[in-house]
């Protein structure tokens, strides 16, 4: 699966796109925790982070299908 990062969290991670293996039954939260295990500095973003799976907003208990794109979305500030 592919994880996309944007804006503040992308800068902090030094990456905009991270490929991760996905296991059967994985949730957004499970994927996030695997990602954070290697990058503890990103944990500060979690309280305000939103998630999208295949471009649809989801909660962190949503399933992540094989081959999905998970976007980590910090508070938006368009307009």
């Amino acid at each position: 699966m592919t994880v996309l990062l944007f804006a503040s969290i992308a800068e902090a991670a030094g990456a905009r796109r991270i490929e991760l293996p996905v296991a059967a039954g994985d949730t957004v939260a499970a994927v996030r925790e695997r990602l954070l295990a290697d990058r503890p500095a990103l944990r500060r973003f979690v309280p305000t982070l939103m998630y999208a799976v295949n471009e649809e907003y989801v909660r962190d208990d949503a399933a992540v299908p094989d081959g999905a794109t998970l976007a980590l979305i910090p508070p938006v500030s368009g307009g």
Binding site: A7, S8, T48, P74, P75, V76, S77, G78, G79
Partner: peptide
């Protein structure tokens, strides 16, 4: 402003920051 995944970064004379709406 609530929902669309767009972000703005302010750039000042002495620094910059991503804005959290």
């Amino acid at each position: 402003k609530k929902k669309v995944p767009v972000w703005k970064k302010e750039v000042w004379e002495d620094g910059e920051a991503w804005i959290e709406g």
